[in-house]
């Protein structure tokens, strides 16, 4: 069971890594992978989910397509001030190693976050699996697909702000 979850986590990160180098549409497609992981009871009951998670791009793209179309259909009605685009943060050293994130913003709202660079440290993935309950971890992945107005997190310094998700949001609104 733990192995399966680990595989799912790694797969999600791996797909995000792969997809984030493609166009914006593709990075939204990364959300599709999260929705395949979303229902954890499925993951518990079917062990083959872990094995087949990575080679399932068809399910991914079909899950993502309605999202893509809805966001593109709503954007022409809004003014040009509503920022859309992809904002890449600089790589920042964390206690686990270098992390670089990319925020995808549509109409001034955060719609997805891609991991461009993650620490090359096997222990880290183990920690993630042990830290968050599996059910909540899937919720965490699903949460990224929604619109978010602001980010609450441990206080960042003015230097750390540049790397924060909040900075990506603020940048998108300027």
């Amino acid at each position: 069971m733990r192995k399966v979850l680990l595989a799912l986590t790694l797969t999600a990160v791996g797909l995000a890594l792969l997809l984030s180098f493609k166009s914006r549409g593709s990075s939204i497609a990364a959300l599709g992978t999260t929705s395949t992981v979303q229902n954890n009871t499925e993951a518990n009951t079917s062990a083959q989910t872990g094995a087949s998670a990575s080679p399932s791009p068809s399910a991914t793209s079909s899950a993502a397509s309605p999202k893509t179309s809805s966001s593109s259909s709503s954007s022409p009605s809004s003014s040009k001030k509503a920022a859309s685009g992809t904002y890449t943060g600089t790589a920042v050293d964390t206690r686990y190693g270098p992390v670089q994130v990319q925020a995808v913003v549509s109409d001034g709202k955060l719609t997805n976050v891609n991991v461009l660079q993650v620490p090359d440290n096997g222990n880290y993935e183990d920690q993630i699996v042990s830290i968050a309950l599996p059910e909540l971890k899937s919720e965490a992945l699903a949460a990224q697909s929604g619109n978010i107005d602001s980010i609450s997190g441990a206080t960042f310094t003015s230097e750390g702000y540049a790397q924060s998700l909040q900075a990506a949001l603020d940048q998108a609104g300027l």
Binding site: V99, I131, A140, L141, Q144, S164, L165
Partner: peptide, 8 residues
Amino acid sequence: HRPDRILL
């Protein structure tokens, strides 16, 4: 644990 992700 992962600054690129949102929990809730």
